[in-house]
């Protein structure tokens, strides 16, 4: 198989939820000398992009997305174990569900979509103490903090997280995006979030835009 064929089949294996095939193709690609970054960006991520499209078209639903992501993660592990190699990502995102809220399926979907799109995600889980978002962002040098809430009663906690991060006690200030069932664009603006997304795919687009804005800003400063 040529490199192109392997990468195409790798993308197919993600879409088809075939973990065994994805593992075999990943090893084959590494044997052939394909760079880990190419395996990720041109194989696995391409597959997850198609999964996102199928999700948007109501062909795939949450269970399919979860299992496709499992296939992608299994291949990631093989790359890491075999080559020990870190691959370039679009940016680093700290994500979690606000304190008091234990519902995490929405956050998991967003996390999967972001990783599938090539971001490195640090997942803090659910019921995350307010200050942990800023502390982890500072520790990991994250570009974005993504905060989710699935309960009407906990969404106000998002404001505290934004204030904590913006207080600069954690050094570099990352972008902050919010989402979840009780959160609206208006609410996101009212608490000073940099971005809002209603869906997993929307979160990817917002994250990509925020990173592009950051790159543009840095370029402008250099010029």
């Amino acid at each position: 198989m040529s490199k192109e064929d392997i990468l195409r089949s790798l993308a197919d294996s993600v879409v088809e939820m075939d973990e065994e095939l994805a593992g075999r193709l990943t090893l084959e690609a590494l044997d052939l000398g394909v760079l880990p970054s190419e395996i990720v960006m041109d194989g696995l991520s391409k597959g997850m992009e198609r999964v996102s499209d199928l999700f948007d078209q109501n062909e795939y639903f949450v269970p399919e997305v979860v299992v496709c992501a499992d296939v992608m993660y299994a291949a990631y592990r093989i790359i890491k174990e075999t080559s020990g190699c870190a691959y370039p990502t679009k940016g680093k995102i700290v994500i979690g569900v606000v304190e008091g809220d234990t519902h995490d399926i929405g956050k998991n979907i967003v996390s999967i979509m972001l990783e599938g799109a090539g971001f490195e995600v640090v997942d803090l889980g659910r019921n995350v103490p307010l200050k942990l978002f800023g502390e982890t962002a500072a520790k990991t040098g994250a570009d974005i903090v993504a905060v989710c809430s699935l309960m009407t009663t906990t969404r106000d906690g998002m404001k505290g997280i934004i204030e904590d991060i913006r207080s600069k006690r954690h050094g570099k200030i990352p972008f902050i995006m919010v989402g979840g069932a009780p959160v609206s664009e208006e609410f996101a603006q009212s608490i000073g979030a940099d971005g809002y997304a209603a869906t997993g795919r929307g979160a990817v687009l917002v994250a990509e835009k925020l990173i592009a804005d950051k790159v543009r800003r840095i370029k402008d400063e250099i010029i």
Binding site: V62, P63, E64, V65, V66, V67, H103, D104, I105
Partner: peptide
Amino acid sequence: ATDICRSIIK
């Protein structure tokens, strides 16, 4: 939620 999604398929 995530594990039940896996189980639905697997």
